[in-house]
Design a binder for these strands. Structure first.
Length: 488
RNA sequence: GGCGCCGUACCCAAGUGGCUAAGGGAAGGGUCUGCAAAACCCUCAUUCAGCGGUUCGAAUCCGCUCGGCGCCUCCA
């Protein structure tokens, strides 16, 4: 069950081909590092995939990378390269790149790195817009042939008047009304209707350009997703996802193009992830509350799993106010899973005799977590059930071998569903801590000696010293371990 | 002007007609510990922004008021 943005109601997601989900999720434009708001949206897609897989479905999951810098749709076509990527190239961070292509590659690679750090499943296909130029040109030609598009001196435009359903997703049916409200709309006199949108822009000065039947230029923003989605998933998708801002115009335009082309529904269901706010305000660089994944993970030593936990802790359909406190809360929760992993690993090798006292309870909790995810991805409840499971595991003084097997199964299944127990990819889990491990070991040895000699003042002194450096000690009968605490 | 969301304990937050209003964090008490930390156990909303209404019954439905927020051709 998912909340479908098109019908504005809860609808059951039923794949056209039983047990095989065809899913497209709009990816980022790679002109900068992706921020945590971007990732809330991609995390939603990830959870859809994981939930479908938990059901035993096969999932064809396509998530694109937009590596073409698009102009504002209504800007004049002579925009002198003033698109997002060109602007990024001219910015301070962009100076190190030789050209826009290098810039796009760099940020695309960084994006995939962050993606894996946050434990997102790799899509079946991660197509790039620049690698599907021919298909885009062909699609535009077809739209012209079918009378849904026309050429002007500045480009090729989709004729909105030719598609009666335009506005069915966003509710923006009254174009005059829309025009009245929108400020700063630059009119292009060559367009037949203000709402017509570009399929192809003629521009011989653009930093990225391709040759087409209409001369040199570049494709409109919306056409790439239509083309790539249909190329890999067929004419009708089961589900299409994206951020709430994409509902209009991007997805509205995708529908118009795709359905004009095929005469078939473009997607059965649509879901849109609400925007993330930070410290009560919209994220903005000027407000100082703008965070990329690497800002938090590298700059603040945040555990990537904790960040993932925090970002999925509120269901995708609700507004979410991200704060540093939320991240700290998430850290202690993620720590619980880690403790369980250690405890279970130890119990597995100990193979103590005894009954499986916790198996049925854990299985029930997993079922409840899955049921919550099936209910419009209710991550709050799913996470609560997962946490209750850790309590069940941790409250046992000693896990029997049978209990350990059950606990392991629970952790594996929870991790497959929510991705919060352990890292799944080979990507570096976190940055190598900038600490001198040998020195810490030496101090721990000294402290152990001090403790043995009842010199507790010295022992506590060492503990305080390390604590000041963000290193937390834990004494146990087996000895002392240490770990680096995040500084968020 | 159009479309839409939210207001639940100190904080985050689930619950959308009916058993004791999930879960986490913080806080307080206890077990453990040389002392801590971590872990575990216990405590922590007669009440769901306010006011009316519908109903045998509402945090949940309807209306109004107050407060906060998002999207509307750059944006996840």
């Amino acid at each position: 069950m998912l909340y479908d943005t098109m019908s504005k109601s809860m609808r059951e997601l039923v794949p056209q081909e039983p047990g095989h989900l065809k899913f497209y999720s709009c990816g980022p434009t790679v002109y900068s590092y992706a921020h945590i708001g971007n990732f809330r949206t991609f995390l939603t897609a990830d959870l859809v995939v994981r939930t479908a897989e938990a059901l035993g479905w096969q999932v064809s999951y396509v998530s694109n990378i937009t590596d073409v810098g698009h102009l504002t749709e209504d800007s004049l076509a002579d925009a002198e390269g003033e698109d997002k990527m060109a602007r990024a190239l001219q910015s301070k961070e962009g100076e190190r790149f030789a050209n826009v292509w290098d810039l796009a590659d760099h940020y695309a690679d960084a994006f995939v790195e962050d993606w894996r750090r946050l434990n997102l499943r790799d899509p079946s296909v991660r197509p790039k817009a620049t690698q599907h130029m021919r298909e885009q040109i062909v699609a535009v030609q077809e739209l012209i042939a079918k009378g849904h598009a026309y050429e002007t001196p500045t480009g090729v435009y989709f004729n909105v008047a030719s598609f009666a359903d335009y506005g069915k997703l966003s509710g923006n049916r009254d174009q005059d009304d829309l025009m009245r409200a929108v400020r700063d709309v630059v009119q292009d006199d060559n367009k037949r209707h203000p709402a017509d949108f570009a399929l192809w822009k003629k521009d011989e000065k653009h930093l990225m350009q391709w040759f087409s039947p209409w001369g040199w230029g570049f494709p409109g923003w919306h056409i790439e997703c239509s083309v790539m989605a249909m190329r890999y998933l067929g004419e009708t998708l089961d589900l299409h996802a994206g951020g709430e801002d994409l509902r209009f115009p991007h997805h509205e335009c995708e529908i118009a193009q795709s359905e004009a082309l095929t005469g078939k529904p473009f997607s059965k269901l649509w879901i849109h992830t609400r925007f993330l706010q930070v410290e009560g305000e919209k994220m903005a660089k000027s407000k100082g509350n703008f965070f990329t994944v690497r800002d938090l993970v590298e700059g603040k030593n945040a555990d990537p799993l904790a960040l993932r936990y925090a970002l999925i802790s509120v269901p995708y359909g609700k507004p979410y106010n991200f704060t540093m406190q939320t991240l700290r809360d998430a850290s202690s929760n993620v720590e619980r899973f880690r403790l369980c992993e250690e405890k279970v690993a130890a119990a597995l090798s100990a193979t103590r005799p005894g009954d499986d006292a916790i198996g049925p309870e854990l299985d029930a909790l997993y079922d409840e977590a899955l049921a919550a995810m099936l209910n419009d991805l209710n991550t709050s409840v799913a996470l609560a059930k997962a946490l209750e499971g850790t309590r069940v595991i941790l409250r046992e003084a000693e896990l029997s071998g049978a209990c350990a097997d059950s606990a392991q199964r629970f952790l594996d299944r929870i991790n497959a569903l929510l991705g919060i127990v352990r890292h799944e990819s080979d990507a570096p889990a976190s940055n190598s801590p900038k600490v001198d491990e040998a020195r810490i070991e030496a101090l721990l040895a000294e402290r152990a000696a001090a403790k043995a000699g009842k010199d507790f003042a010295r022992a506590d002194g060492i503990r305080d010293q390390l604590a000041a450096e963000g290193i937390e000690l834990r004494d146990s009968p087996e000895g002392t371990t240490w770990r680096l605490k995040g500084v968020v």
